[in-house]
């Protein structure tokens, strides 16, 4: 019985490790290219726009950190960039848009390719504090 439990425990650790790797593995492109990155405020007013050249294997987080100021990424979430700052009560947050569509993943695992337009937009958190 004890051996059975040990085997199940090992299997659970393997599942945790595999799922964690799947989640935490950052996206890296398989080719070179360039992307346009925009930072917009709560009224969608452009704060900064930059065309960034990337190479195979470049992480988006590194590209953003190297091309924009005041970048803070905490636990996979973009908390600060340029003058945008996520308040502690999360009444607003920095949403990521890819080619006009709201991104389904965070900045670390967001896929991007040559010619993509990314936007970091300050957004009202509709579900906080309601």
């Amino acid at each position: 019985m004890k051996n059975k439990k040990v085997l199940w425990a090992i299997l659970a650790v393997i599942v945790i490790a595999a799922a964690y790797i799947l989640i935490a593995k950052p996206f890296t492109p398989k080719g070179d290219g360039s992307i346009t990155v925009k930072v917009t405020d709560i009224d969608q007013k452009l704060i900064k726009e930059k065309k960034i050249v990337f190479k195979t294997g470049d992480k988006l987080t590194d590209l953003v950190k190297n091309n924009f100021s005041n970048v803070v990424i905490d636990n996979g979430m973009l908390m600060k960039i340029e003058s945008l700052d996520t308040p502690s009560d999360w009444a607003q947050f920095i949403a990521i848009w890819t080619n006009g569509k709201l991104a389904e993943v965070g900045i670390e695992t967001l896929p991007y390719a040559d010619g993509d337009v990314l936007e970091f937009r300050m957004t009202v958190n509709e579900y906080a504090g309601k």
């Binding site: 199940w8 425990a9 659970a12 650790v13 599942v15 945790i16 595999a18 799922a19 989640i23 993943v105």
Partner: peptide, 30 residues
């Protein structure tokens, strides 16, 4: 609340479901 589409959410949630299930399994077992 978040207006998340069903299918992409369901697919992307699988590893998170596995993490919660496996960590709960391991915690209870030990």
């Amino acid at each position: 609340v978040l207006h998340t589409p069903f299918v992409p959410y369901l697919i992307k949630d699988v590893p998170f479901e596995l993490l919660l299930a496996a960590s709960s399994f391991l915690g209870i077992l030990l």
